[in-house]
Design a binder for these strands. Structure first.
Lengths: 209, 209
DNA sequence: AGTTTTGTACTGACCAGTCAGTGCAAATCG
DNA sequence: CGATTTGCACTGACTGGTCAGTACAAAACT
């Protein structure tokens, strides 16, 4: 009954084409923006005929939306994994936050173009994929908010903190620092960057410990 | 010798038109991005003919570049002012950082569209105004870096902090938190948001004080 | 044998930038 | 004084090019 080549869903060939298109689109759109990137360019960089793009995706915007969903899905999974692993090992909530900072850095290190593109589109309004982006953002930030809330409940964090705003600020801290790293001092190591952010996170900038 | 009608520089009329064009362009580009915004739209929103745009600016990109310079100039000045005022009053460097956080929030509160657009374009590569943006960014971040460096020199901050990266992270923290505030909970007061960020800045989230 | 990809050619909407011309107020002229 | 010129600011129809999306027959995969 079962086919020998394990196929879960679509054919492998088609999946490979879609993957190539994602990769081509992500770098081009990160560099130039959505509107300035042409479908011809995407097809060419993917090494594929233009018709193939439209055989695989209903339109340019749909391609982009699926790309967004795909990418943020990876990030969210990675953040969750980091938080859960820390919990399993009996770490504190600060440890969990720190692990998530690292997971964020690893993600950005691996997919800098996606991150760039995500930031560039996130606060736009009046765009077709706005709602998709909103949903997907909530999922990611919610992971951070969850850890903060648990920390408050456990008495590890002050109950005066504003969970939502603090989560956004933490995400912003990592995002901007990492993009800066990649853009302006790419020779530095991930550990190095992580150490700097850890210090800031734990208030060891101003305070003597 | 001197003319009776004291006119310093350009005519008032022209200046007013340029201002209208700036205002129209900033909101449209923040919403849709540079490439997706047409010159016709900008002209229409400014209540001006298309030709007038080209009478006042050499091209669409030039209009945008001057807009960027103009906006970041305002921000930089405001940050400097905050730092200097704190110094004059004999505040600590943490106080100065805090004052700059507030200045940043005030700026974003007043010019949310500009901030949006700035973030969206900052990490793009291969764009015409890339170099302009780079210069202008350095100026703004340099103000924060300056305060951090002085703090280290004065022994107020650990000399192990990475000035450049920490500055970027702080800017990111304020930027993203503020955009989140404006986008998702605009009813909150500036003081409220400032308080949350202050707490984070001073490590009063996790640390017992 | 059905699915996927290719290559080429095409369409029609859209858009940055141009240009000949208008309106108007101050300056110059006769 | 009235008539004419000058220069600035602005206008909006027009042009030349670009690009998303379509069409389709032949080829390549699985």
């Amino acid at each position: 009954m079962e086919s020998s080549s394990a196929r879960s869903g679509g054919s492998t060939r088609r999946e490979a084409t879609r993957q190539k298109l994602y990769e081509a689109a992500v770098t081009l759109i990160a560099e130039q923006g959505f509107s300035a990137t042409t479908v011809d360019e995407i097809a060419e960089r993917a090494g594929v005929a233009k018709g193939t793009v439209y055989y695989n995706f209903a339109s340019k915007s749909v391609l982009f939306e699926e790309l967004l969903r795909h990418g943020v899905g990876l990030l969210t999974a990675s953040l969750k994994e980091a938080a859960e692993q820390t919990a399993r090992r009996g770490g504190t909530k600060v440890d969990a936050l720190d692990a998530m900072v690292r997971a964020g850095l690893v993600f950005i290190d691996r997919y800098p173009a996606f991150t760039q593109l995500y930031v560039a589109e996130l606060w736009r309004t009046n765009r077709a994929w706005q709602s998709t982006l909103m949903v997907v953002r909530r999922e990611a930030v919610a992971v951070v908010e969850g850890v903060l809330r648990e920390g408050v409940a456990a008495g590890e964090f002050s109950d005066e903190i504003d969970v939502q705003l603090t989560a956004a600020a933490l995400v912003g801290m990592v995002l901007v620092a990492a993009l800066d790293w990649k853009s302006f001092q790419p020779e530095r190591s991930l550990d190095d960057v992580h150490a700097a952010l850890s210090r800031l996170l734990q208030g060891r900038v101003s305070g003597r410990v």
